[in-house]
């Protein structure tokens, strides 16, 4: 199995007016794994994320997804191929109901997204599947609520349910536990573990205890370059990593 890497980058570089935010990153994400991207603030994690999902254009380098070059792909097209991202701040549709949030994602497979002459009742056939997804993240009781009224941790859960609705092969989660209390973190970690069966997850994460419990492989970024890659135990003993990461965190 030469092709057991679902996502690969080679020499991925992004420059902003002379400032090199991401510098020659070679990343390999194994199919079926939970892969974490960590690093101190400003290491370029979110930039890498935006490059992978095509929200930013790379200055140099290649990205392949399932062996296919996606460097020139458009973000919406990429999502349709099965690479779906989440965002650092919770990405929900605040003025739609909780159910509608998930249903918007399910609508992609109906093919009636441009049908402005049809009643929205034609979408009701998606409600069962939407409810299933909401139940899976313990949001069944909130289905009718307008999303803006949902507590923060629940919004993250909703975001995951919405992403799952697309049945992505590869989920990219940008700091899924950011800004959460302990109970919420545990809930989200459990959730990620649950949804990781049969799919690959690449996540940016600050919380090292989350990473150590959840992730199979870790890539450490510092100043836009890869510092180390491997399982948590190995990477966490790497002196360079300790210096760059722990040093920056605890000083």
């Amino acid at each position: 199995m030469a092709d057991d890497h679902i996502l690969e980058t080679s020499g991925l570089t992004k420059e902003f007016r002379g400032f090199v935010a991401v510098n020659g990153v070679d990343l390999k994400v194994r199919r079926g794994s939970i892969h974490a991207l960590i690093g101190p603030n400003g290491a370029g994690k979110t930039t890498v994320f935006n490059l992978l999902t095509k929200f930013l254009e790379p200055t140099r380098g290649r990205i392949t997804f399932n062996g296919r070059d996606i460097t020139a792909e458009r973000p919406a097209a990429l999502a349709r191929r099965g690479l779906v991202r989440s965002f650092q701040i919770s990405a929900v549709f605040p003025h739609l109901s909780v159910l509608e949030n998930v249903r918007v994602a399910l609508q992609t497979r109906l093919g009636t997204a441009f049908h402005f002459w049809k009643s929205e009742r034609t979408l009701n056939k998606l409600n069962d599947r939407a409810m299933e997804l909401l139940e899976a993240v313990d949001l069944g009781a909130f289905a009718g609520l307008i999303t803006v009224e949902l507590p923060y941790g629940r919004k993250r859960a909703l975001e995951i349910a919405t992403t799952l609705a697309l049945e992505p092969e590869l989920m990219l989660l940008d700091e899924p536990t950011q800004g959460m209390g302990h109970e919420d973190i545990d809930r989200v970690v459990e959730l990620i573990r649950k949804v990781s069966t049969n799919r690959t997850i690449l996540m940016v994460e600050h919380n090292l205890s989350v990473v150590s419990h959840l992730c199979d492989r870790i890539t450490v970024l510092a100043r836009g370059s890869v510092l180390a890659e491997g399982p948590y135990d190995e990477v966490s003993q790497n002196p360079q990593v300790l210096e760059a990461y722990v040093g920056a965190e605890h000083e």
Binding site: T53, F55, P75, A76, A79, V84, R85, S86, F87, A91, V92, F93, P94, H95, L96, E100, R103, V104, Q107, L110, T112, A113, F114, H115, F116, W117, K118, S119, E120, T122, L123
Partner: peptide, 19 residues
Amino acid sequence: SPFGQILKSIRDNEPRAIS
């Protein structure tokens, strides 16, 4: 309509709709 739903989602959060 189904179109209106997508339109409202774009109004609410455009990057998410793209994703």
